[in-house]
Design a binder for these strands. Structure first.
Lengths: 204, 204
DNA sequence: TAAATTATTGTATGTGCGTTCAGTTTTTTG
DNA sequence: CAAAAAACTGAACGCACATACAATAATTTA
């Protein structure tokens, strides 16, 4: 009994350590430079350990991406919980997608690399889908009841792709600042929503 | 004299063939699967030929990306030349960024891979910058005189990143259609520009 | 403490890659 | 046609990598 408990604990620990080491290597050397040797070295372990705790390198990468996504989604969730007004919630959603200290070229590039790898690996596509669905549902929680469904989907797509595009630009080193990006997306959101409101008023 | 002329011709021909072969391999196997062997095989030549006409694999890749960018930019240019009205020009610019038959997952993924590789390779960053600058200048040719400079830059960034984001989504296989994307970006452009106009009217 | 299980190591192995280069064929020159 | 230059070949090399695995160390169990 205690045996199993301990085993699980150390296994989880090692897996976590390897994932975090993989993350650091990823940040520093990019997807191409993320070798098993470097990961194990970064984790302070020997080369063979990776095969012991993971199915292979791909498995580590996937676990890493999943962990990152989870962290980001939780950040948005806590931001949402703190917001009180409808517009505050919108800002929280958008700002949550440009976390200060994380909106940096190397991190953006890591994310981009994973997107690029998505075409090969079905699991990544699924992960991305989940991520986008969450954004969509967050936006829906703010505006679905105010907008017609078709137009809402359009606006959600517009805002979502803008966020992605800004990250992409950041990945190439463009000098974008997280607060500016939030402001930009927010301003577009405002323009689209006021327009939609006016259209709805005219219809009535 | 004839010697030099002929030499130049066959060299250009082979280089072009290799670039196009590289492009096909890229499309089919992705950036990771684009090996020198496959490229030469696809071009119907032997393995060593690549080093004969190019400095190395990277050189071929770069030439390929440059060629693609040129083609896309020219497509936009011709579309622009045909447009007569101001709004027609705007639509031509946007539609030119979603060319029918080219707005497909594998092509999108190829572009995405290059973006991801940009962080390592300075030449790609330069290429991307040129591309974005061209988009910016095209948009400027339509709207700069109507808008304040700061707001124009914001709007141009918003539209540009949306276009990128839509390509990114397409890369992961999302079912987006080129005409829908054009319509979406155009609708956002309209919303932003009418808003900007109203703001300017109120100021007067 | 002895046995047994688990955790870790580091070398070995095989694979796939980009690049090189000595040689061969083709084309051009005189 | 002979000599020279250019175009091209394909085997060979070295390197970096992921993974496997036998050996060893640490820990738990009885």
């Amino acid at each position: 009994m205690t045996k199993i408990a301990f085993r699980t604990r150390i296994e989880d620990l090692r897996r976590r350590e390897l994932i975090e080491a993989a993350h650091r290597v990823f940040m520093q050397h990019g997807l191409g430079g993320m070798t098993t040797k470097r990961i194990c070295e970064e984790a302070g372990m020997s080369a063979g350990i990776l095969s012991y705790y993971f199915k292979g390198k791909e498995d580590v990468l996937f676990a890493m991406v999943r962990l990152n996504n989870r962290v980001l989604m939780e950040a948005v969730a806590t931001g949402l919980a703190q917001a009180t007004t409808r517009w505050g919630r919108l800002e929280a959603i958008i700002a949550g997608n440009f976390p200060e200290g994380l909106f940096e070229p190397n991190i953006a590039n890591a994310w981009l690399s994973v997107c690029a790898a998505s075409s090969t690996n079905i699991r990544y596509v699924r992960l991305q889908r989940i991520f986008y669905a969450r954004l969509q549902s967050n936006l829906a929680s703010v505006f679905r009841d105010v907008l017609a469904d078709a137009r809402f989907k359009q606006i959600a797509l517009a805002l979502g792709t803008m966020i992605d595009g800004l990250w992409l630009r950041r990945a190439t080193g463009e000098a974008l600042i997280s607060t500016d990006c939030t402001a930009l997306v927010l301003s577009v959101a405002v323009a689209l929503l006021t327009e939609a409101e006016q259209a709805q008023l005219q219809a009535a």
